[in-house]
Amino acid sequence: MTRVRLGRPTACVAALGVLGAAQFLRERLPRAAGVPVSVAASGALVGIARRAGAGWDELGLARGRLGRGARYGTPPALAVAAAYTAGAALPVTRPLFADARAARTLPGALRQALVDVPLGTVLLEETGFRAVLPALLREPYGTRGAEALTAALFGLWHVLPSGALRAANPALARASAGGSEPSRAATAVGNVLVTAAGGLLFGLLRRRGDSVLAPALAHSALNSFGYLAAYAVRRPAEG
């Protein structure tokens, strides 16, 4: 049976549909469903890109590029770990890490850092926004244009999650809104701008490292060490 090849515009629409469906499900299903949804959606995204003719190198998923990706992704990941350690220790920045979404037990925090983040968050977002969408958009918009578009989409992807930020981490919500007491709209705008800027940096890492592993390591560090820092900050406060 001959497989029908997708045109890249059609594939791009399909990929956005998969990402939208995954976001919808993750916001409405129990937290335990996050990893299965992410894994399934990531597989669907790669399948769409391959049907559109994207090769493993083009997607940044070639095994031969993993070493280079690790070399580019490890230094920023270590820098994030050092910055979070200092931030959680300093009184002036410690409130930024007091996030109610972090687990209250060490096993729970480790699960968030080692399972929920890499498989439930980073896998899907890096597959979608640093592998599949840039590959599908590169032909009409060029490499830099594709990176800019996917960074903007990455920022918009965080509109719904921004709703939980105000309640879970008021200090960070105020910081993202410029220091004022944020409205829901201001929190969303601040979160979109910050994550879009992060998307640009992740895109740069993807291009320099020639592998999605490079931004995935940095992205995992940002989220995973955030949960661990939040656990460390909340534990003495609650004890």
Rank of each mutant, 00 (worst) to 15 (best):
I48M: 03
A44L: 15
A49V: 11
A33Y: 14
L25S: 11
L59K: 04
P30D: 00
A32T: 12
A22Y: 03
A21Q: 08
V18S: 03
A62R: 13
R63Q: 11
S42E: 09
G64T: 09
G53N: 07
E27S: 15
G55T: 15
V46M: 04
V35F: 09
L29N: 13
G20M: 01
S42R: 03
G53P: 03
V35D: 01
G60C: 11
G43L: 10
A14G: 15
P30G: 08
S42A: 15
R50K: 02
R26D: 14
L25F: 14
A33D: 07
P36H: 04
P30I: 00
L45R: 06
V39A: 03
A21E: 07
R51K: 12
L29W: 14
V37R: 10
V39C: 04
Q23H: 11
A40P: 02
E27K: 14
A14N: 07
V13M: 14
R63E: 07
A40S: 07
V13K: 13
F24G: 09
R63S: 10
G60Q: 02
G20Y: 06
G53R: 05
A49Y: 05
V18E: 01
R63H: 10
A62E: 11
G64W: 05
Q23W: 13
L25C: 00
L25P: 02
G53M: 03
E58F: 06
V46G: 01
R31C: 01
V46D: 10
W56N: 10
G34H: 13
L16I: 09
A44H: 05
L61S: 06
R31G: 14
V46Q: 07
R51H: 08
L59T: 01
R63W: 03
L45M: 10
L59C: 04
L29Y: 00
V37M: 13
A15K: 05
G43W: 04
L19H: 07
A15D: 08
A62V: 08
V18T: 05
A32Y: 08
L19G: 06
R51N: 08
R26L: 14
W56K: 09
A62S: 13
L61Y: 04
A32E: 15
G47Q: 06
L16D: 09
A54V: 04
R26C: 13
G55D: 15
G60I: 00
V46N: 05
G55K: 06
A62Y: 01
G43R: 04
A52R: 10
L59V: 02
